Simulated assay, not measured.
Amino acid sequence: MRIGTIWPSFSALRGAWGAVLRGTALGTLFGILPGGGATIASFSAYALEKRVAKDRSRFGNGAIEGVAGPESANNAAAQTSFVPLLTMGIPTSATMALMVGALTLHGIAPGPMIISRQPDLFWGLIASMFLGNAMLVIINLPMIGIWVRLLAVPYRLLYLVIVVICAIGVYSVNNSSFDVYMTVGFSLLGYVLRKLDAEPAPLLMGFVLGPMVEENFRRSLITSHGDPMVFLQRPISLALLLISAALLISIMMPAIRQRRVEVFQE
Score class of each variant (00 low, 15 high):
95 T>C: 01
58 R>T: 14
92 T>A: 04
128 S>A: 15
164 V>Y: 15
141 L>K: 13
115 I>K: 03
247 L>N: 04
53 A>E: 11
81 S>K: 07
252 M>S: 14
203 L>S: 07
76 A>D: 10
81 S>P: 00
237 S>F: 11
39 T>F: 15
138 I>S: 04
240 L>I: 10
76 A>V: 09
183 T>C: 10
31 G>H: 10
248 L>R: 05
35 G>A: 06
115 I>E: 07
138 I>A: 13
231 F>N: 04
89 G>R: 00
148 V>Y: 14
265 Q>F: 09
263 V>L: 13
3 I>H: 11
50 K>Y: 11
178 F>E: 12
153 V>N: 04
166 C>N: 09
82 F>I: 02
52 V>L: 10
208 V>A: 01
255 A>E: 12
229 M>W: 10
123 W>A: 04
245 A>H: 05
116 S>K: 02
120 D>Q: 09
30 F>D: 06
82 F>G: 00
35 G>M: 08
243 I>Y: 12
96 M>G: 00
99 M>W: 12
117 R>V: 04
14 R>C: 00
49 E>G: 09
198 A>H: 06
122 F>Y: 13
254 P>F: 11
264 F>T: 12
50 K>V: 00
166 C>M: 14
73 A>S: 10
42 S>E: 08
58 R>V: 13
96 M>A: 08
115 I>Q: 08
117 R>P: 02
33 L>E: 10
27 G>Q: 07
15 G>Y: 08
156 R>T: 05
165 I>D: 04
94 A>V: 13
148 V>A: 11
20 V>T: 15
161 V>F: 15
49 E>K: 02
35 G>V: 06
212 M>Q: 09
227 D>H: 13
171 Y>S: 05
2 R>S: 13
163 V>A: 14
11 S>Y: 12
64 I>A: 04
43 F>P: 01
65 E>F: 05
254 P>M: 01
236 I>L: 15
203 L>P: 05
127 A>C: 03
214 E>Y: 12
93 S>R: 01
96 M>H: 04
19 A>N: 04
194 R>P: 01
168 I>M: 10
73 A>K: 06
120 D>P: 01
24 T>V: 03
128 S>H: 09
167 A>Y: 12
92 T>H: 01
127 A>T: 08
136 L>Y: 09
246 A>Y: 13
47 A>G: 06
221 L>V: 00
139 I>V: 14
51 R>L: 02
54 K>Q: 07
145 G>T: 05
183 T>R: 01
143 M>Y: 11
45 A>S: 11
140 N>H: 04
100 V>Q: 05
185 G>Y: 02
139 I>D: 03
172 S>T: 15
260 R>C: 01
75 N>E: 05
220 S>P: 00
7 W>S: 06
121 L>T: 03
99 M>H: 07
67 V>I: 11
256 I>K: 13
4 G>W: 06
1 M>D: 13
72 S>M: 09
266 E>N: 14
54 K>L: 08
40 I>M: 08
236 I>Y: 15
41 A>C: 00
233 Q>E: 07
23 G>C: 02
155 Y>C: 03
223 T>D: 14
195 K>C: 03
169 G>C: 07
210 G>M: 02
134 A>T: 09
118 Q>R: 04
1 M>T: 14
12 A>W: 14
163 V>M: 13
36 G>S: 06
126 I>N: 07
77 A>D: 05
9 S>R: 06
137 V>G: 08
38 A>Q: 10
71 E>Y: 10
53 A>G: 08
96 M>N: 03
49 E>Y: 10
73 A>Y: 12
